[in-house]
């Protein structure tokens, strides 16, 4: 497979008071051109840490990240690659400098990379603003004068300034109202089509992921526990954690909720635990799950679907696939 972005065995450790914590524990992912790969999981699962390592905000403890085959850990390629790999953050309030005008914010990457003269940059910023649905006449205003949805458009315009191949989108809709989410989601799909972009879309919201992703990787406690094409993951999930996440999506038209159809909340890694990290919450767990960590491996009936579960070849009803 010719991957545009390949992450191989990524490990990210943080030193804390009680020793080091492994936030990301051997994550491998590959994005082909045009993919919208959704990386999903609950808070603390390590998905944002993966994103920060990819864009170079963290130095990985182990593993390789390659863009078009070039290793990003080499300093020389890192500088050149930042132009091809841009990130959009969750919080459109915190990620934009409140003292700068929208025009300055969007044009900043162009200024930093000394691209074009002032008037060329000004024209380019105007075009970017129009591409994301902002009124160029309002670009003199500061972030505070814009709504949450408009601020996220500013952040997207800035990310597009250097004409990247890949956008790393870290929960780009989570701080927005549902109706504004739909607007930004449509914008992202339009931009992908018009500019041939590839997305790594990080989210905890599976309802949104189902609408935008081509493939989905589910993360739990620092590892990928399931990865599959979108339809396969939603129609035939094989990891019990994926099933738990799917069951928790609020659904329209299902009437008032049936209670107690979801398993326990996360309570962190248990000290001395050697088995599957999900076993303490898992309705399917057996004694071996407490000792043997299952590898991420293809399921028998679908080679493009991988799950890290000893029972990956069972359907939800327990029957063999």
């Amino acid at each position: 497979m010719s991957a545009l972005l390949a992450i191989d065995g990524l490990v990210q450790e943080f030193r804390g008071r009680g020793g080091s914590v492994r936030a990301v524990d051997g994550v491998s992912l590959a994005l082909a051109p045009g993919d919208v790969l959704a990386l999903v999981g609950e808070s603390g699962c390590g998905k944002t840490t993966v994103a920060r390592a990819i864009v170079g905000l963290l130095r990985p403890s182990a593993g390789r990240i390659r863009l078009d085959g070039e290793d990003l850990s080499a300093q020389r390629t890192r500088a050149a690659s930042t132009r091809r790999l841009q990130m959009v953050f969750q919080d459109p309030f915190g990620s934009l400098d409140p003292r700068l005008s929208a025009r300055t914010i969007i044009g900043e990457p162009l200024a930093i990379h000394r691209l074009g003269d002032r008037s060329a940059r000004r024209a380019r910023v105007g075009a970017l603003a129009e591409a994301v649905g902002l009124d160029p006449a309002q670009l003199g205003r500061r972030p505070r004068a814009f709504s949450g949805g408009q601020r996220q458009r500013i952040a997207i315009a800035r990310a597009l300034a250097l004409d990247p191949a890949i956008l790393i989108l870290d929960e780009p809709l989570s701080a927005l109202d549902v109706s504004i989410q739909a607007q930004v989601l449509q914008l992202l799909l339009e931009l992908r089509r018009a500019r041939g972009l590839t997305y790594l879309f990080i989210s905890h919201d599976l309802a949104v992921v189902e609408a935008i992703a081509t493939r989905v990787a589910v993360m739990y406690a620092g590892r990928i526990v399931e990865e599959a094409p979108r339809d396969r993951l939603f129609d035939a999930p094989r990891h019990p954690y994926t099933r738990l996440l799917l069951a928790a999506i609020p659904r329209l038209g299902a009437g008032k909720r049936r209670r107690a159809d979801t398993a326990a909340e996360p309570d962190g890694a248990l000290p001395g635990w050697t088995g599957c990290a999900f076993a303490p919450r898992c309705p399917r767990a057996e004694p071996r799950c407490r000792h043997e960590t299952p590898a991420l491996a293809p399921v028998r009936d679908a080679p493009d679907q991988r799950a890290a579960c000893h029972f990956r070849d069972e359907r939800a009803d327990g029957a063999a696939a």
């Binding site: 549902v178 739909a182 309802a207 189902e210 609408a211 979108r230 339809d231 939603f234 999506i249 329209l252």
Partner: peptide, 12 residues
């Protein structure tokens, strides 16, 4: 609101 199962983006 994104509808589970429809696989299409919601309408803004």
């Amino acid at each position: 609101v994104p509808r589970p199962g429809t696989r299409t983006p919601p309408r803004a």
